[in-house]
């Protein structure tokens, strides 16, 4: 007997979660699906519980947290409690905190030799002048408002920059800047599931500079670049993830021929293009982990 709890975002995507539940049901005896906002964490006398309708979910064998940055603060707390318990989960609090911060992710990975491009973080828009001197144009700006990203922009000129800075100044946001990597509108997402990697090429819509599936792009499984796949596994390990997705852009700016863009701790399954492939592999992996743990 083995059971799993899947914790979703407050505003979860029903379609995406349905296939995780379907695949979990095939390999687990019991599957509990809970949006994070229905949980209560109890802290008393050195003991913690996470309750859902009176059930302590820490008594489950495995947990797959799939909440995003919109539930950041509750998410940090829930992950901390899960991490202190005996339950198996394929993600970590450290990885959640870092992967929700695009600059911090690049910093961590670059320091361990994973190819990246020049990236910066400033705590005020006033520092943008120094950044432009370093980067020149075009430049990719990512606004970080409190916790979690708020948007990505490609800035090509001084005039465009000025109008963005005027807005940013009003909200006192952070800015992460990144050298623009001309890679067309495609990128490669490496799904990491333990030591296995599934490489998927994403191509954005013809009028989109990003490889954005939700805006009309497409995805297809490809024969992966071994070096890139090794970097994806290394990135996952650095962040304490058994399961995640690492996104790369192919470029001749580095000798490896690619750079890392970000790590996604709860990657979407791209069901329209990939069917149930990703959730199936993930759930089978988690089940095996539970079995191994039980055998010890």
């Amino acid at each position: 007997m083995a059971d799993i709890v899947i914790i979703a975002s407050t505003h979860y995507n029903k379609g995406n979660n349905k296939i995780f539940i379907e695949e979990a049901s095939k390999v687990f005896d019991k599957v509990l699906f809970v949006p994070i906002n229905r949980l209560t964490v109890v802290e008393k006398n050195g003991i913690s519980k996470i309750l859902y309708k009176g059930t302590n979910i820490l008594e489950f064998d495995a947990c797959y947290p799939r909440f995003g940055s919109s539930d950041y603060f509750m998410g940090e707390t829930v992950l901390h409690v899960l991490e202190q318990s005996q339950i198996y989960m394929p993600v970590s609090l450290k990885g959640y905190q870092i992967s929700n911060h695009k600059y911090y992710t690049i910093k961590k990975l670059a320091e361990h030799g994973i190819p990246c491009v020049l990236t910066s973080l400033s705590a005020s828009p006033q520092s943008m002048r120094n950044i432009v001197e370093e980067f020149g144009f075009p430049i990719v700006l990512k606004l970080i408002s409190g916790f979690g990203g708020r948007g990505v922009m490609l800035v090509s000129s001084e005039d465009e920059l000025q109008s963005i800075l005027d807005t940013v100044h009003l909200f006192e946001e952070y800015i992460s800047a990144q050298r623009f990597v001309p890679g067309g509108n495609t990128d490669i997402r490496c799904y990491v599931i333990g030591d296995e990697v599934l490489s998927v090429r994403r191509t954005g819509a013809p009028n989109d500079w990003r490889a954005n599936i939700s805006r009309g792009g497409k995805a297809e499984i490809i024969e992966g670049n071994k070096k890139m796949e090794q970097c994806a596994i290394q990135a996952a390990k650095l962040l304490g993830f058994d399961i995640c997705a690492v996104d790369f852009i192919e470029t001749d700016l580095t000798k490896e021929g690619f750079v890392v863009i970000e790590v996604n701790y709860q990657p979407g399954p791209f069901r329209k293009f990939l069917g149930n492939v990703v959730p199936k592999k993930m759930m089978e992996f988690i089940r095996k982990k539970v079995e191994k743990k039980a055998a010890k």
């Binding site: 407050t10 906002n37 209560t40 802290e43 008393k44 913690s48 603060f73 901390h80």
Partner: peptide
């Protein structure tokens, strides 16, 4: 910066905190 996390961290190290419940909504 996250009081919910802080209480949980302190409790996990057996630091005495007042009995607390953290609600998702």
């Amino acid at each position: 910066s996250n009081e919910m996390l802080q209480l949980s961290v302190l409790n996990s190290y057996n630091i005495k905190i007042p009995p607390t419940r953290i609600f998702g909504n």
